[in-house]
Amino acid sequence: MRSLIDIKELSLKELDSLIDTALDIIENPQKYSEKCKGKKLATLFFEPSTRTRLSFEAAMYELGGNVLGFSEASSSSSAKGESVADTAKMISCYADIIAMRHPKEGAPLVASMNATIPVVNAGDGGHNHPTQTLADLLTIKRKKGRFNNLTIGLCGDLKFGRTVHSLIAAMSRYEGVKFVLISPEELRIPSYVKTDVLDKCGIEYVETKDLCGAMPELDILYMTRIQKERFFNEEDYLRLKDSYILDPQKLENAKKDLCIMHPLPRVNEISVKVDSDPRACYFEQALNGKYMRMALILMLLGIK
């Protein structure tokens, strides 16, 4: 029985295989429409989410399976004080696979240690979000055709941005990748990501506050939202929330084939005027998330 808690648990071979499956699903959706018939996905969302939860649910429905679960902690037994471990044991009796989002870091790992069915981490606090990374990787593959020799700009909240941490971990395994880490001083990448991932893999990176200065060399620009829910102090949030706003002017010096990504939801960090730019990939990225979640569900359930 296999779970997915951290993107690093997947080997490059397994990632390739998931991407191949997702590409095949895109080409031949009919072939997969009954693969999960009779199977149930439990979506345990202890924190609000639209995209990830609906994407998981859509993925399971398109595989012919069913979905049960809850979308906020107040409608679950955790409101009565049930532990994550007990919830995982109980849900194992009703479903075949769990997708869990939780505000506390490590909660999906605790669930996987207690469940008897696969658990997918659908986001744990500011820690990890591996299925978003799967969506990001498929988007990069479809847009760029490769994972190596890319300069990737990551912009915004690099401290609490779990999608950023997971993407760095995944892309650091490829050759010729360079990161440009663009953030305000207070939201710089945590030191453990630098020491344990970037330095360990010998990955080239620079840290800067200047988005426009970094723009010309980027192959990919990954924007992130400054997340209100990660701040204990509202004052800090208000001070930092508008640090970076991407608009058509800022893109003037960008490469013609730049790929603009965002895990969504966005607030104002990408102007809606950018949406019509052919380089904007973020809505396609959300669609790719569904395909990768379909591929992942098949892999974890051992369905060919």
Binding site: A85, K104, E105, G106, A107, G126
Partner: peptide, 19 residues
């Protein structure tokens, strides 16, 4: 304070040697 062990106090506190 964001760790699951901060609110589920019966969990073992487990640390692994990473470096």
């Amino acid at each position: 304070p964001r760790c699951i062990t901060s609110c589920e106090q019966e969990l073992d506190q487990v640390f692994t040697l990473t470096d």
